[in-house]
Write a protein that binds this DNA or RNA. Structure first.
Lengths: 140, 140
DNA sequence: CCTTGACCTTCCTATGATGGGAAGGGGTAG
DNA sequence: CTACCCCTTCCCATCATAGGAAGGTCAAGG
Protein backbone atom coordinates (compact mmCIF):
# COMPACT_ATOMS: atom_id res chain seq x y z
CA UNK A 1 0.00 0.00 0.00
CA UNK A 2 1.32 3.40 -0.89
CA UNK A 3 0.55 6.51 1.10
CA UNK A 4 -2.62 7.39 -0.77
CA UNK A 5 -4.12 3.99 -0.12
CA UNK A 6 -2.98 4.09 3.48
CA UNK A 7 -4.65 7.44 3.80
CA UNK A 8 -7.92 6.10 2.46
CA UNK A 9 -7.72 3.04 4.64
CA UNK A 10 -6.97 4.94 7.81
CA UNK A 11 -8.71 8.26 7.39
CA UNK A 12 -5.44 10.10 8.07
CA UNK A 13 -4.32 12.45 5.31
CA UNK A 14 -1.09 11.66 3.47
CA UNK A 15 0.25 14.95 4.73
CA UNK A 16 -0.36 13.96 8.32
CA UNK A 17 1.04 10.46 7.86
CA UNK A 18 4.33 11.98 6.76
CA UNK A 19 4.18 14.40 9.66
CA UNK A 20 3.53 11.65 12.21
CA UNK A 21 6.50 9.77 10.82
CA UNK A 22 8.66 12.87 10.98
CA UNK A 23 7.91 13.61 14.61
CA UNK A 24 8.40 9.97 15.53
CA UNK A 25 4.80 9.18 16.42
CA UNK A 26 4.85 6.24 13.99
CA UNK A 27 7.86 4.29 12.85
CA UNK A 28 9.23 5.18 9.42
CA UNK A 29 7.35 3.22 6.81
CA UNK A 30 9.20 0.79 4.57
CA UNK A 31 10.26 2.13 1.21
CA UNK A 32 9.94 0.66 -2.25
CA UNK A 33 12.82 0.73 -4.74
CA UNK A 34 11.52 4.03 -6.00
CA UNK A 35 11.45 5.48 -2.48
CA UNK A 36 7.68 5.34 -2.12
CA UNK A 37 6.44 4.60 1.38
CA UNK A 38 4.96 1.14 1.72
CA UNK A 39 2.38 0.41 4.42
CA UNK A 40 1.22 -2.90 5.82
CA UNK A 41 -1.88 -3.76 7.79
CA UNK A 42 -0.18 -3.11 11.06
CA UNK A 43 0.75 0.39 10.00
CA UNK A 44 -2.86 0.98 9.07
CA UNK A 45 -3.96 -0.21 12.48
CA UNK A 46 -1.59 2.24 14.11
CA UNK A 47 -2.90 5.06 11.97
CA UNK A 48 -6.48 4.18 12.80
CA UNK A 49 -5.58 4.09 16.46
CA UNK A 50 -4.11 7.54 16.17
CA UNK A 51 -7.08 8.81 14.24
CA UNK A 52 -9.48 7.68 16.93
CA UNK A 53 -7.37 9.00 19.75
CA UNK A 54 -7.16 12.38 18.01
CA UNK A 55 -10.92 12.39 17.58
CA UNK A 56 -11.17 11.98 21.35
CA UNK A 57 -8.98 15.03 21.72
CA UNK A 58 -5.77 13.35 22.88
CA UNK A 59 -2.68 15.34 22.03
CA UNK A 60 0.07 13.81 19.94
CA UNK A 61 2.20 13.56 23.06
CA UNK A 62 -0.50 11.63 24.88
CA UNK A 63 -0.96 9.39 21.89
CA UNK A 64 2.74 8.60 21.90
CA UNK A 65 2.25 7.20 25.39
CA UNK A 66 -0.97 5.43 24.52
CA UNK A 67 0.64 3.79 21.50
CA UNK A 68 3.53 2.42 23.46
CA UNK A 69 1.18 1.16 26.13
CA UNK A 70 -0.95 -0.39 23.44
CA UNK A 71 2.03 -2.27 22.06
CA UNK A 72 3.08 -3.48 25.49
CA UNK A 73 0.87 -6.43 26.27
CA UNK A 74 1.86 -6.49 29.90
CA UNK A 75 1.21 -2.85 30.75
CA UNK A 76 -0.96 -2.23 33.77
CA UNK A 77 -4.30 -0.75 32.83
CA UNK A 78 -3.72 1.78 35.60
CA UNK A 79 -1.38 3.74 33.39
CA UNK A 80 -3.81 3.96 30.54
CA UNK A 81 -6.62 4.94 32.85
CA UNK A 82 -4.40 7.64 34.31
CA UNK A 83 -3.78 9.20 30.93
CA UNK A 84 -7.44 9.00 30.02
CA UNK A 85 -8.63 10.48 33.28
CA UNK A 86 -6.12 13.28 33.08
CA UNK A 87 -7.38 14.05 29.64
CA UNK A 88 -11.00 13.99 30.73
CA UNK A 89 -10.19 16.42 33.53
CA UNK A 90 -8.47 18.67 31.04
CA UNK A 91 -11.43 18.54 28.69
CA UNK A 92 -13.89 19.26 31.48
CA UNK A 93 -11.96 22.27 32.65
CA UNK A 94 -11.78 23.70 29.17
CA UNK A 95 -15.47 23.01 28.73
CA UNK A 96 -16.27 24.88 31.94
CA UNK A 97 -14.24 27.83 30.77
CA UNK A 98 -15.95 28.01 27.43
CA UNK A 99 -19.32 27.48 29.03
CA UNK A 100 -18.72 30.49 31.25
CA UNK A 101 -17.79 32.56 28.21
CA UNK A 102 -20.85 31.44 26.30
CA UNK A 103 -23.16 32.12 29.24
CA UNK A 104 -21.78 35.59 29.86
CA UNK A 105 -21.94 36.47 26.23
CA UNK A 106 -25.39 35.15 25.63
CA UNK A 107 -26.68 37.02 28.68
CA UNK A 108 -25.22 40.18 27.17
CA UNK A 109 -26.71 39.40 23.82
CA UNK A 110 -30.12 38.90 25.37
CA UNK A 111 -29.92 42.44 26.71
CA UNK A 112 -29.05 43.83 23.28
CA UNK A 113 -31.93 45.01 21.13
CA UNK A 114 -30.16 44.06 17.92
CA UNK A 115 -31.88 46.73 15.85
CA UNK A 116 -30.91 50.00 14.20
CA UNK A 117 -30.29 51.81 17.45
CA UNK A 118 -26.69 52.25 18.55
CA UNK A 119 -27.12 51.38 22.22
CA UNK A 120 -25.45 48.08 22.83
CA UNK A 121 -24.88 46.48 26.22
CA UNK A 122 -22.37 44.08 24.68
CA UNK A 123 -20.01 46.86 23.72
CA UNK A 124 -20.75 48.69 26.95
CA UNK A 125 -19.68 45.67 28.88
CA UNK A 126 -16.54 45.14 26.86
CA UNK A 127 -15.56 48.75 27.36
CA UNK A 128 -15.90 48.40 31.10
CA UNK A 129 -19.05 50.40 31.74
CA UNK A 130 -20.92 47.56 33.40
CA UNK A 131 -18.40 45.36 35.13
CA UNK A 132 -21.12 43.49 37.06
CA UNK A 133 -21.86 41.03 34.30
CA UNK A 134 -18.25 40.16 33.60
CA UNK A 135 -17.13 37.90 36.44
CA UNK A 136 -13.52 37.63 35.37
CA UNK A 137 -12.68 41.00 33.89
CA UNK A 138 -9.34 41.42 35.58
CA UNK A 139 -7.46 38.15 35.36
CA UNK A 140 -8.89 35.94 32.62
CA UNK B 1 2.97 55.90 29.84
CA UNK B 2 5.51 53.57 28.40
CA UNK B 3 4.72 50.03 27.39
CA UNK B 4 5.41 48.48 30.79
CA UNK B 5 3.00 50.84 32.50
CA UNK B 6 0.44 50.33 29.76
CA UNK B 7 0.80 46.61 30.26
CA UNK B 8 0.18 46.92 34.00
CA UNK B 9 -2.75 49.24 33.46
CA UNK B 10 -4.42 47.06 30.84
CA UNK B 11 -3.45 43.53 31.78
CA UNK B 12 -2.08 42.93 28.28
CA UNK B 13 1.57 41.89 28.17
CA UNK B 14 4.05 44.22 26.50
CA UNK B 15 4.75 41.44 24.04
CA UNK B 16 1.12 41.28 23.03
CA UNK B 17 0.71 45.05 22.84
CA UNK B 18 3.49 45.15 20.27
CA UNK B 19 1.92 42.24 18.45
CA UNK B 20 -1.52 43.89 18.35
CA UNK B 21 0.09 46.98 16.92
CA UNK B 22 1.97 44.96 14.37
CA UNK B 23 -1.10 43.16 13.05
CA UNK B 24 -3.07 46.39 12.97
CA UNK B 25 -5.51 45.58 15.75
CA UNK B 26 -4.56 48.81 17.52
CA UNK B 27 -3.17 51.93 16.00
CA UNK B 28 0.57 52.45 16.29
CA UNK B 29 1.30 54.15 19.59
CA UNK B 30 2.98 57.54 19.67
CA UNK B 31 6.72 57.52 20.12
CA UNK B 32 8.95 59.54 22.42
CA UNK B 33 12.16 61.12 21.21
CA UNK B 34 13.99 57.98 22.19
CA UNK B 35 11.59 55.82 20.21
CA UNK B 36 9.73 54.47 23.22
CA UNK B 37 6.04 53.84 22.71
CA UNK B 38 3.86 56.33 24.57
CA UNK B 39 0.31 55.39 25.57
CA UNK B 40 -2.55 57.63 26.61
CA UNK B 41 -5.76 56.79 28.45
CA UNK B 42 -7.59 56.06 25.29
CA UNK B 43 -5.00 53.51 24.25
CA UNK B 44 -5.40 51.87 27.63
CA UNK B 45 -9.14 51.72 27.15
CA UNK B 46 -8.67 50.01 23.82
CA UNK B 47 -6.31 47.50 25.35
CA UNK B 48 -8.72 46.78 28.15
CA UNK B 49 -11.49 46.31 25.65
CA UNK B 50 -9.36 43.83 23.76
CA UNK B 51 -8.41 42.05 26.94
CA UNK B 52 -12.03 41.53 27.90
CA UNK B 53 -13.08 40.47 24.47
CA UNK B 54 -10.26 37.91 24.38
CA UNK B 55 -11.33 36.62 27.76
CA UNK B 56 -14.74 36.00 26.22
CA UNK B 57 -13.09 33.98 23.50
CA UNK B 58 -13.44 36.42 20.63
CA UNK B 59 -10.75 35.99 18.00
CA UNK B 60 -8.55 38.89 17.04
CA UNK B 61 -10.42 39.13 13.76
CA UNK B 62 -13.73 39.42 15.57
CA UNK B 63 -12.27 42.00 17.91
CA UNK B 64 -11.16 44.07 14.94
CA UNK B 65 -14.79 44.33 13.97
CA UNK B 66 -15.98 44.94 17.51
CA UNK B 67 -13.44 47.70 17.98
CA UNK B 68 -14.50 49.53 14.87
CA UNK B 69 -18.14 49.18 15.85
CA UNK B 70 -17.28 50.41 19.30
CA UNK B 71 -15.70 53.54 17.87
CA UNK B 72 -18.64 54.19 15.60
CA UNK B 73 -21.28 55.82 17.76
CA UNK B 74 -23.96 55.42 15.15
CA UNK B 75 -23.55 51.71 14.48
CA UNK B 76 -26.70 49.65 14.69
CA UNK B 77 -26.59 47.29 17.67
CA UNK B 78 -27.75 44.58 15.27
CA UNK B 79 -24.24 44.21 13.93
CA UNK B 80 -22.69 43.77 17.33
CA UNK B 81 -25.34 41.31 18.36
CA UNK B 82 -24.69 39.38 15.18
CA UNK B 83 -21.01 39.00 15.94
CA UNK B 84 -21.73 38.04 19.53
CA UNK B 85 -24.37 35.50 18.62
CA UNK B 86 -22.17 33.97 15.97
CA UNK B 87 -19.46 33.61 18.52
CA UNK B 88 -21.80 32.08 21.07
CA UNK B 89 -22.92 29.53 18.48
CA UNK B 90 -19.32 28.74 17.74
CA UNK B 91 -18.53 28.30 21.42
CA UNK B 92 -21.55 26.10 21.96
CA UNK B 93 -20.65 23.84 19.09
CA UNK B 94 -17.10 23.43 20.31
CA UNK B 95 -18.41 22.77 23.78
CA UNK B 96 -20.72 20.07 22.47
CA UNK B 97 -17.84 18.45 20.63
CA UNK B 98 -15.62 18.41 23.67
CA UNK B 99 -18.47 17.24 25.84
CA UNK B 100 -18.98 14.27 23.57
CA UNK B 101 -15.28 13.44 23.77
CA UNK B 102 -15.27 13.73 27.54
CA UNK B 103 -18.39 11.59 27.89
CA UNK B 104 -17.08 8.86 25.61
CA UNK B 105 -13.75 8.82 27.31
CA UNK B 106 -15.08 8.82 30.81
CA UNK B 107 -17.45 5.98 29.97
CA UNK B 108 -14.44 4.03 28.73
CA UNK B 109 -12.46 4.91 31.80
CA UNK B 110 -15.28 3.72 34.04
CA UNK B 111 -15.00 0.32 32.37
CA UNK B 112 -11.27 0.15 32.99
CA UNK B 113 -10.13 -1.52 36.17
CA UNK B 114 -7.10 0.73 36.47
CA UNK B 115 -5.02 -1.87 38.27
CA UNK B 116 -2.03 -4.08 37.49
CA UNK B 117 -3.83 -6.19 34.95
CA UNK B 118 -3.23 -5.44 31.30
CA UNK B 119 -6.83 -5.65 30.08
CA UNK B 120 -7.94 -2.18 29.16
CA UNK B 121 -11.18 -1.28 27.43
CA UNK B 122 -9.80 2.15 26.63
CA UNK B 123 -7.04 0.76 24.44
CA UNK B 124 -9.40 -1.87 23.08
CA UNK B 125 -11.73 0.82 21.95
CA UNK B 126 -8.99 2.94 20.40
CA UNK B 127 -7.71 -0.05 18.49
CA UNK B 128 -11.14 -0.67 17.03
CA UNK B 129 -12.19 -3.78 18.90
CA UNK B 130 -15.35 -2.31 20.33
CA UNK B 131 -16.65 0.27 17.93
CA UNK B 132 -20.03 0.48 19.70
CA UNK B 133 -18.88 2.96 22.28
CA UNK B 134 -17.26 5.33 19.84
CA UNK B 135 -20.10 7.14 18.09
CA UNK B 136 -17.96 9.08 15.63
CA UNK B 137 -15.10 6.79 14.86
CA UNK B 138 -15.07 7.35 11.10
CA UNK B 139 -15.42 11.02 10.46
CA UNK B 140 -14.51 13.03 13.52
C1' DC C 1 8.19 3.65 -27.52
C1' DC C 2 6.45 7.76 -25.72
C1' DT C 3 3.09 10.61 -23.68
C1' DT C 4 -0.27 11.68 -20.26
C1' DG C 5 -2.07 12.00 -15.93
C1' DA C 6 -2.21 10.52 -11.38
C1' DC C 7 0.61 9.64 -7.81
C1' DC C 8 4.76 10.02 -5.06
C1' DT C 9 8.98 12.56 -2.99
C1' DT C 10 11.09 16.56 -0.23
C1' DC C 11 11.10 21.28 1.19
C1' DC C 12 9.09 25.72 2.33
C1' DT C 13 5.29 28.48 4.07
C1' DA C 14 1.21 29.69 6.67
C1' DT C 15 -2.19 29.51 10.27
C1' DG C 16 -3.38 32.00 15.70
C1' DA C 17 -2.03 33.78 19.88
C1' DT C 18 1.45 33.58 22.79
C1' DG C 19 6.07 33.15 25.07
C1' DG C 20 11.22 33.18 25.22
C1' DG C 21 15.39 35.20 24.36
C1' DA C 22 19.37 37.84 22.26
C1' DA C 23 21.63 42.13 21.08
C1' DG C 24 21.79 46.79 21.65
C1' DG C 25 20.15 51.55 23.16
C1' DG C 26 17.77 54.67 26.70
C1' DG C 27 16.62 56.76 31.38
C1' DT C 28 17.14 57.50 36.04
C1' DA C 29 18.78 57.07 40.80
C1' DG C 30 22.52 56.88 43.57
C1' DC D 1 29.31 58.35 35.99
C1' DT D 2 27.73 53.95 36.65
C1' DA D 3 24.46 50.49 37.68
C1' DC D 4 20.30 48.60 36.70
C1' DC D 5 16.06 48.32 34.70
C1' DC D 6 13.34 49.32 30.83
C1' DC D 7 12.85 49.83 26.03
C1' DT D 8 13.72 48.59 20.99
C1' DT D 9 13.80 45.14 17.00
C1' DC D 10 14.39 40.58 15.30
C1' DC D 11 14.36 35.61 15.45
C1' DC D 12 12.56 31.25 17.06
C1' DA D 13 9.20 27.92 19.22
C1' DT D 14 4.73 26.17 20.18
C1' DC D 15 0.57 22.63 18.10
C1' DA D 16 -1.70 20.19 14.42
C1' DT D 17 -2.83 20.96 10.03
C1' DA D 18 -3.04 22.54 5.13
C1' DG D 19 -1.25 24.45 0.75
C1' DG D 20 1.93 24.57 -2.82
C1' DA D 21 6.24 24.15 -5.73
C1' DA D 22 9.65 21.39 -8.05
C1' DG D 23 10.76 17.18 -9.50
C1' DG D 24 10.65 11.84 -9.79
C1' DT D 25 7.62 7.43 -10.76
C1' DC D 26 4.20 4.41 -12.47
C1' DA D 27 0.59 2.50 -15.34
C1' DA D 28 -2.27 2.81 -19.25
C1' DG D 29 -3.15 3.86 -23.86
C1' DG D 30 -1.93 5.66 -28.49
Amino acid sequence: MNIGQASNASGVTAKMIRYYEQIGLVRPADRTDSNYRSFNDRDINDLRFIKRARSLGFSVKEITNLLSLWRDRTRPSREVKGIADGHVADLRSRIAEMQAMADTLSALSDCCAGDDRPDCPILSNLSGDTPAIAPDQSQA
